[in-house]
Amino acid sequence: MPLTVPCCPSCRSEHVVKNGRIHNGKQNHKCSDCGRQFVQDPQNKVIDEGTKRLIDKLLLEKIPLAGIARVTDVSELWLQQYVNAKYEQVPRQVTVSTKKKGRLTLECDEAWSFVGHKGNKQWIWLALDRSTREIVGVHIGDRSQEGAQALWESLPAVYRQCALCYTDFWQAYRAVLPPQRHRSVGKESGQTNHIERFNCTLRQRVSRLVRKTLSFSKKLENHIGAIWFFIHYYNASLPL
């Protein structure tokens, strides 16, 4: 029985060649005239809510998108579009428990990361409430005084009014934080142990922050979204 030659769905050309297989094993074709890629008798797979919830959990672990696509049996293209939409909707503001005015203690630090290539550095500025372990301030950008200012402005008002802030000796902190409520300390003091431990947790859980990885971010928007996605999860999981 002669094999039927597939026609290009765009230009109806029969000058079609085989072009590998898609994620579910079906034969992929490519039109030699217009370049369109397609499969015969395509069937749109509906991704159920259970699979989406599983993907949301896997995004919080050190697993690359290609690995998540293999585990959940979805296409990498669909997964990338899903992740793009999810990270775009993640709030860029912390949600923390209500604090009364009084003695509050913050630990602040900045962690190195990059987008696209290591020359495009993106510093993650973080402030952690020592008592509750909540992340109460976040900024992602360069390591300049403007970055320290953005971290300070991201803090809820009660922290800007009352908190004592422990940081390393990076000069940008001294230029921005009120001197009467700022202490520059070394690691040996133990005053920044909790924020440094969180930085380690962040690198262990968000694959695009691992120093030597193929899972690094290609888009700044997704880089920022992934970090915020984990921070919201982390704060919500604390036993407050």
Rank of each mutant, 00 (worst) to 15 (best):
Q93G: 06
K101F: 14
A111Q: 01
E88T: 14
S113C: 01
N120I: 01
S113N: 01
A85Y: 09
L104S: 12
T98I: 10
G102Q: 13
Q89P: 05
K100A: 13
K57P: 03
Q122W: 02
V71Q: 06
L59I: 06
V74R: 09
L60H: 10
Q80E: 14
T98R: 15
D56G: 06
V71N: 02
R70D: 14
L126Y: 00
A69L: 07
I63T: 08
D129Y: 01
K100P: 08
L65I: 09
V83Y: 04
E76K: 13
I63V: 11
G116Q: 06
S131T: 15
L58E: 11
E76A: 11
G119D: 03
L106K: 09
P91D: 06
S97R: 09
L58I: 13
G102D: 11
K99L: 07
Q93N: 10
L79I: 07
K62P: 06
R92G: 08
W125C: 00
V115H: 00
I68T: 04
A85T: 14
Y82F: 14
N84H: 15
S131W: 07
E110W: 00
Q89D: 13
T95F: 12
I124D: 00
Q122C: 05
V74H: 08
W112V: 02
V90C: 05
K99P: 03
N120K: 02
K62D: 07
E61G: 12
S131D: 12
D129E: 05
G67I: 02
T105K: 12
L65N: 06
S113P: 00
N84I: 10
I63R: 09
W78T: 10
G116A: 05
T105I: 15
P64E: 06
